[in-house]
Design a protein around this nucleic acid. Structure first.
Length: 421
RNA sequence: CGGGGUGUAGUGAACCGGUAUCACGCUCGGUUCGGGACCGAGAGCCACUGGGUUCAAUUCCCAGCACCCCGACCA
């Protein structure tokens, strides 16, 4: 992609001081544009990041045997009345009337999934069912804030699974928990599985995936040694307590409880047969008897993840994207002379490259490259050309966003470095 | 929903009871070209909306709306 042709470029404009870090860098870098409070356009650059996150999640979901589909966002009132959530969740749900019919914009899909199941699955042989989609969620947050971290409209991956036994549900539930941890790890995030309250989803406790982060709005109590972690809202421990989960037999082995701000990056819910019963979802078991399937749902907020990554991985100059989600793999800058040839070569070798071919000053190109945060920066200039004389082949300056070190390499070396990881 | 703040050009700000200024950005020309270059010329704001006070309102007052921050609440 030639940067000159990209829609939604970085801006030199000053932004208001009180913006959260993720909003500031994502807006300044040309990743997103705010339409209204809690609602953002993903500009081409931001859309690429979200698509990368989506693909990582998709691959992990598919590995668990889940199947992707796409469900509607406009829902009739009836289906929400079946579980009583038309009323009980009306605070978060956008509800409206049109031509005397009542609708809601989707804030989740449990009811929709169950309606689907009762029309398409009847026998124990049809289970387990694991279906997911990526789609927009609308939630009437009392207060949208912190840029992409809490919006009223955002992208989410939601997975729903149905099982013929609690045991089978349990097994898959923890498989997904593992899968989530893997996903977050790939994104460079160390997420803690956290016991939490279920909100409008369930009265039972659920598991959230929390990432420690100063600007997070949740507070978690966690063990410094093991994976024990509880959300403050239900916490049974406090700072400096001995961890209840650590083996307490050998003294000195028990971790202390610490607390910290955190951001929720995912959430998994076990519903048992609660919703199936409300919605009359049954299957025939081996004995020909009607049974209620066990149900669970699992969510990850994609746009929130992009926000968290920007929030956590930046310096004073801009974002520092993890390689796996960076909008491009390489940021190519030309100074003085054009770098068209190198650009074409990289494209031919299937390296995702953003080529800043604009006729602007070197300083501006460097500043924008730092702001956009692509992992590798390549520079072609008279200077690198001069330094190439006597070398075998043309030398190109190579610099990683995370480091200050600049080195000169030839094309093959650069390709190796990029392809290596 | 309570508390606080802000609405003036694309962005950020200034001023003022007599319809508006600056910086950045943008356009054109020229000079530049390794860390947000320089010179010159230009375009661009019905001052959020509605009402009130006044000879006169962008300015003062009231209401509404929007956005931001704190809180409550929530994935």
């Amino acid at each position: 992609m030639k940067y000159s042709e990209l829609f939604g470029k970085a801006t030199k404009s000053e932004l208001k001081e009180d913006l959260s870090a993720n909003a500031k860098y994502l807006i300044k870098g040309g990743f997103v544009d705010q339409l209204m409070s809690g609602s953002y356009t993903l500009l081409p650059l931001g859309f690429r990041v979200v698509k990368k996150i989506e693909q990582i999640i998709r691959e992990e979901m598919n590995k668990t045997g889940a199947q992707e589909l796409l469900m509607p966002l406009l829902h009739p009132k009836d289906v929400w009345n079946e579980t009583g959530r038309w009323d009980s969740a009306k605070e978060v749900m956008y509800q409206f009337k049109k031509d005397d019919k009542e609708f809601a914009l989707s804030f989740t899909h449990e009811e929709i999934v169950l309606d689907l199941i009762r029309k398409h699955a009847f026998a124990y042989k049809d289970f387990p069912i694991k279906i997911y989609h990526f789609s927009t969620k609308f939630r009437n947050e009392l207060r949208a804030k912190s840029g992409l971290l809490r919006g009223r409209e955002f992208l989410m991956k939601d997975l729903y699974s149905l099982h013929i036994s609690e045991k089978d549900l349990d097994k898959y539930y923890w498989e997904i928990a593992d899968s989530y941890i893997k996903i977050f790890k790939k994104l460079g995030l160390d997420a803690k599985i956290t016991e939490a309250a279920g909100g409008v989803f369930t009265d039972e406790h659920t598991h959230e995936f929390q990432v420690l982060c100063d600007s997070g709005e949740d507070i978690v109590f966690y063990c410094e040694k093991c994976d024990f972690c509880q959300n403050k809202e239900i916490a049974t421990v406090q700072d400096n307590d001995n961890c209840p989960k650590c083996p307490s037999t050998s003294s000195g082995q028990v971790g202390k409880i610490k607390s910290g701000n955190s951001i929720e990056v995912g959430n998994i819910f076990k519903f048992g047969t609660f919703y199936s019963k409300k919605m009359n979802v049954y299957f025939m078991d081996e004995k020909g008897e009607k049974q209620l399937p066990y149900f669970a749902s699992y969510g990850i907020g994609l746009t929130r993840l992009m926000g968290i990554l920007a929030e956590m991985f930046h310096d004073g100059k801009g974002i520092i994207w993890p390689k796996v989600v960076a909008p491009f793999r390489v940021h190519l800058i030309s100074i003085g002379k054009n770098a068209d040839e190198l650009y074409e070569k990289l494209k031919k070798d299937e390296v995702e490259v953003l080529y800043d071919d604009r006729d602007v000053s070197p300083g501006e190109k460097f500043a924008d490259a730092d702001l956009i945060g692509i992992p590798v920066r390549l520079v072609v200039s008279e200077k690198t050309l001069r330094q190439s004389s006597g070398q075998a082949g043309e030398q190109i300056e190579y610099k990683e966003r995370i480091s200050e070190e600049k080195i000169l390499l030839n094309y093959e070396q650069i390709l190796n470095k990029i392809k290596k990881n």
